[in-house]
């Protein structure tokens, strides 16, 4: 879907072992499957059901999401690095789409 857009905010550099905040947001309706349309028909579920963050291939965070997460899911957590490298953020949509974005970070 063209209207799904991930956004990520991390610092451009961090010192080894220093905790820093990672903020992510993706535009997505998170249709819970529990709502009905104007004609009373159930609107089929379509949510982001999983989000992962990896750094240089190693797991930082792996999250399973349900319909009770708000539209445009916002996820914030703390990460740390021991080397320069690349974060990979991945969102998995019920409709089979996978959205990925990467962010490079330097060692300060």
């Amino acid at each position: 879907m063209a209207d799904v857009k991930p956004r990520v905010k991390i610092p451009s550099s961090a010192s080894a072992g220093e905790a820093f905040t990672v903020k992510t947001l993706i535009s997505h309706p998170m249709e819970s499957g529990l709502r009905k349309d104007a004609d009373g028909n159930a609107i089929p579920r379509r949510i982001i059901n999983r989000f992962t963050c990896e750094f240089n291939g190693a797991n930082v965070l792996d999250m399973e999401l349900h319909g009770a997460v708000s539209a445009n899911p916002y996820i914030e957590f703390e990460a740390q690095i021991d080397a320069a490298g690349e974060f990979t953020f991945t969102w998995y949509d019920d409709d089979g789409s996978v959205y990925t974005t990467t962010n490079a970070i330097d060692l300060a």
Binding site: F55, N59, V60, L61, A79, Q80
Partner: peptide
């Protein structure tokens, strides 16, 4: 949510 080694 599960936390891996890269989480602070």
């Amino acid at each position: 949510v599960s936390f891996g080694p890269g989480s602070a």
